[in-house]
């Protein structure tokens, strides 16, 4: 049975009318028209659908919308500043050209942003651990690692 839910997405209150069991991913993409979180597996195995819940990166594909009403939800769109400038992690992925098809980029960027809030200067292994959930098939991992280190440096300075 559908019900009304008010979600806090990218700093705005958004009200949707959906079945409470609907995974957050579908609400973000189909009801709110966002592109950042992507459908990859629906099984929480690939990280394509990653969003921030408060400051934690979490896959949105199995997360019932009813469970996230109290969280501040941030998607890839929400990282871009109001003046249109990019978050340092977004900027670093552009600078390092850390994409091929780019489908997994959402998962990498969101995971990296979450990581840098708790580990401002992560080493290689810490980054690898933080991105463990994110699958990339094109093989841009080495560029992503370089981008995240670069973002960490730029945020520190």
């Amino acid at each position: 049975m559908e019900a009304e839910f008010t979600l806090h997405v990218n700093g705005q209150a958004r009200t949707v009318r959906v079945d409470p069991a609907t995974p957050l991913l579908y609400v973000l993409r189909d009801d709110l028209g966002l592109n950042g979180p992507k459908f990859g597996c629906g099984l929480q195995q690939c990280g394509s659908c990653m969003v921030l819940l408060d400051t934690i990166a979490w896959p949105s594909c199995q997360l019932p919308v009813a469970n996230v009403q109290n969280a501040a939800i941030t998607t890839l769109e929400g990282l871009t500043r109001p003046d249109g400038s990019l978050h340092p992690v977004q900027q670093a992925f552009v600078d390092e050209q850390a994409a091929q098809c780019g489908y997994c980029l959402n998962g990498m960027v969101m995971s990296a942003v979450a990581l840098l809030t708790v580990h401002p200067k992560p080493d290689d292994q810490t980054i690898r651990n933080a991105l463990f959930r994110v699958l990339c098939r094109c093989g841009v991992h080495s560029r992503a690692l370089a981008a995240i280190k670069k973002a960490a440096d730029s945020m520190k300075s």
Partner: peptide, 17 residues
């Protein structure tokens, strides 16, 4: 540089999906 990578990080509609 590829200009589509910036569109990807901005979550613009890039894909058929």
């Amino acid at each position: 540089r590829r200009d589509d990578i910036e569109r990807m990080v901005r979550a613009e509609p890039v894909y058929v999906q």
